[in-house]
């Protein structure tokens, strides 16, 4: 290998090729992915989350929640994601078009959260109960007490204060971070049946459907 320029060109070419293939290739396929407008329901999916939830996404990222929680449901015949109630269908790229920093995650020390909002609504979990879980910890998840401040009760207690837990005369008030984190978690919904998200069914089931 005596020719320096050709050597450097080769190195550069190899990297450029994989970048073009993987990154530009995916961009060509998904770059202009738009929300799907459903004429029957009269709105587009995925729905935009409220601004508070958008801030919550950044709190989720800052705290490194993705170290234990994924946000990607695998298809029903690939793992037990559906059986665990994490989502009725697999996650698809369109689910994430509104998220500034999708938190797909790489590790499942805790449950998947891609469709958490739907699950919470089904189980009757509310913002208040989620805040209590964050303060007390739950199922191996530690208590994140730094998301709350203890404040003296002056007049009426704050509307969002936790019930109990504080010393007499004091109240536990969630910080704005905690409020937005909870709003974000409750906004996570992957329920709309996009055409590309229809589960792959074994041949026998398909026959029954037709």
């Amino acid at each position: 290998m005596k020719n320096g320029p050709i050597f450097f060109f080769g190195l550069f070419f190899i990297l450029a090729l994989s970048w073009a293939g993987l990154v530009l290739g995916t961009n060509a396929q998904l770059g202009d992915l738009a929300p799907h407008y459903d004429e029957l329901e009269g709105k587009a999916f995925p729905e935009r989350a409220p601004g508070l939830a958008g801030q919550g996404l950044l709190v989720y990222r800052d705290l490194g929640c993705a170290a234990c929680h994924t946000q990607q449901v695998r298809r029903p015949d690939f793992g037990a994601d559906k059986a665990r109630g994490w989502g009725e269908r697999q996650s698809v790229a369109r689910d994430y078009v509104h998220q500034s920093v999708p938190q797909l995650g790489t590790m499942r020390i805790g449950p998947d959260l891609a469709d958490y909002g739907t699950r919470a609504a089904k189980n009757g979990a509310t913002a208040a109960s989620l805040l209590a879980d964050l303060y007390n910890g739950r199922n191996g998840m530690p208590a994140y007490r730094f998301l709350f401040t203890e404040r003296k009760v002056v007049g009426e207690p704050a509307a969002n204060a936790l019930v109990g837990g504080a010393r007499a005369g004091y109240q536990l008030v969630p910080t704005p971070q905690a409020e937005s984190l909870v709003a974000y978690l409750l906004s996570l919904k992957q329920t709309y049946e996009f055409a590309e998200a229809r589960p792959y069914e074994p041949a026998a089931d398909q026959k029954g459907a037709h």
Partner: peptide, 30 residues
């Protein structure tokens, strides 16, 4: 020689002019 290339590409595509949605995951794993 190669690290600055993929390091700078990741910086631009993930932080300074972030790509959309799940493309970020593709860039990050690359």
């Amino acid at each position: 020689f190669l690290l600055p290339w993929f390091f700078s590409v990741a910086q631009v595509m993930l932080n300074f002019l972030p790509v959309r949605g799940v493309l970020q995951a593709v860039v990050a794993t690359w």
